[in-house]
């Protein structure tokens, strides 16, 4: 369990996520949304909107933001913060690409009370 939390886990290939899209990783602490932006950057956030828990993975990805499907809050993918003037944040997870493989760590980054 602990090992799981500290390892960079291989969760799939970048091409398994469509550009401007997202996929869900079912994790012990709840779903994690892994996003791929138009410029092929990859971000991972808790799949829970800070507003009322909407599944961010189902939103429209644009620039480095996602629009929550339930009430259209916008969330910055790089920080997990809601776009002002809305306030709140979704926890961020470390994610990186190695040779096309997506690697994720299950310990959220610091700095978000909602994690």
């Amino acid at each position: 369990m602990n090992a799981l939390h500290h390892d960079w886990l291989d969760i799939g290939h970048i091409d398994d996520i469509p550009r401007q899209g997202a996929r869900v990783v079912a994790a012990p602490g709840g779903n994690i949304a892994v996003f791929r932006t138009v410029d092929d950057r990859v971000f991972a956030l808790a799949d829970r909107c800070p507003h009322r828990g909407g599944p961010l993975s189902q939103g429209i990805v644009h620039g480095h933001q996602v629009a929550c499907p339930l009430h259209d809050w916008r969330i910055h993918l790089n920080t997990g913060l809601a776009v002002a003037p809305d306030e709140g944040c979704a926890a961020r997870y470390p994610v990186r690409i190695d040779d096309g493989r997506i690697r994720l760590r299950l310990t959220p980054e610091d700095g978000c009370p909602n994690r």
Binding site: L4, I11, A26, A27, P28, N31
Partner: peptide
């Protein structure tokens, strides 16, 4: 199926 299924299941 990828749209509908999790990318990975770690539970």
């Amino acid at each position: 199926a990828r749209e509908f299924l999790p990318l990975a299941t770690l539970v």
